[in-house]
């Protein structure tokens, strides 16, 4: 039990922070814990959570994916254009868009793993290239409305539970199995801890790296389609906020940006924390500027709690209390 606590200290801290925030928010705004409000919080968190799923895999593997904003945005716009508001085309459009996201991820992964391009530069480049291409394709004009099936997936409910929450739950299960039970997960942690050691231990490092970016491209594309359903239309710039929030969710969830540690279960709590904060500030009558300040402070605090220096301090304290 103690070993479990030690190993997952940061993830548990993220959940503790989430519960604390819920209590504080409920004190300031009594209606916050109502079913309808919790539903909308979970729906908003799900978008962050889905984008951050791929980001988690990439970061655990020691990389970073800055291309999520325009993979998300391109997926949304291409889906809306190809479907033109109809449901039937989704049968081929949805797989096509997901495959497109995976392909961008594949390009990112190959650039990083095969050509040795730093992840920041590789994914930054694909992001601006996608941004430009989508602007060229659409000429900057807005796209048709989202198909109703997509709307159902992002705002509909089954037995009172938002459909997207069920999608998020299923994805969480898959991600947890991949990270905790599959060989891919073991390879990923080994790769993130030390690429050199992993390579010499027979871990297929190139393939593992490429796969993380493929997952990230796919989840960003999925989030793009679902977000179109939520907002009703696809619009330019709809993915911009998700670069910061997806990285922040992973960091708050306890993963090290250096790779090798962290878990998607932590990221889920991170996505919830970010979204609850968004709901807390209007209750306190604070502006969107204040929200950014709070976001920054929360990131600083959580990464400090996870730092070597803090862990060293904590163990020193424990030792000194045991002595007395």
């Amino acid at each position: 039990m103690n070993a479990f606590l030690a190993r997952n200290r940061l993830i548990l801290l993220a959940y503790a922070g989430m519960v604390l925030l819920l209590v504080v928010t409920a004190l300031f705004s009594p209606g916050f814990l109502s079913a309808s409000n919790m539903r909308s919080t979970v729906v908003l968190a799900a978008f962050v959570g889905i984008v951050a799923l791929g980001q988690t895999f990439v970061i655990v593997g020691g990389g970073i994916d800055l291309s999520v904003p325009w993979v998300l945005n391109s997926a949304a716009i291409i889906m809306a254009l190809l479907c033109a508001g109809q449901d039937l085309p989704l049968i081929w459009v949805a797989p096509l868009v997901l495959a497109g996201g995976a392909t961008i991820g594949l390009i990112n992964g190959l650039g990083v793993a095969q050509f040795g391009v730093p992840p920041i530069i590789m994914t930054l480049a694909t992001n601006v290239i996608l941004q430009g291409l989508i602007l060229v394709v659409t000429g900057g004009s807005p796209s048709p409305a989202a198909p109703s099936v997509i709307k159902f997936l992002s705002v509909g409910r089954i037995g009172g539970i938002p459909v997207i929450a069920l999608i998020w739950l299923a994805l969480t299960l898959i991600a947890t199995l991949l990270l905790s039970k599959a060989a891919f997960g073991r390879h990923l942690y080994a790769l993130g801890t030390s690429a050199t050691v992993a390579e010499f231990s027979g871990v297929p490092t190139a393939r593992t790296t490429v796969l993380t970016y493929v997952i990230s491209g796919t989840t960003a594309a999925l989030a793009g389609m679902l977000l179109t359903g939520y907002s009703g239309v696809a619009y330019l710039g709809m993915g911009d906020a998700y670069l910061f929030t997806s990285i922040a969710a992973v960091a708050i969830g306890g993963a090290s940006i250096l790779g090798g540690s962290g878990h998607y279960l932590g990221t889920v709590a991170g996505a919830m924390v970010l979204t609850i904060l968004t709901g807390l500030l209007p209750a306190l009558n604070l502006s969107s500027g204040a929200l950014l300040v709070v976001y920054g402070a929360v990131i600083l605090i959580t990464v400090s709690l996870g730092s070597e220096a803090f862990a060293g301090l904590a163990s020193t304290l424990r030792r000194s209390t045991r002595k007395t």
């Binding site: 910061f244 969107s288 300040v293 920054g296 990131i299 990464v303 730092s307 220096a309 803090f310």
Partner: peptide
């Protein structure tokens, strides 16, 4: 605090931008 520059400056970016 032995923190990563990427995360520290991401956080201070957010704080400064919010301010």
């Amino acid at each position: 605090l032995k923190l990563q520059p990427f995360l520290v400056t991401l956080a201070t970016w957010s704080i400064l931008n919010g301010t």
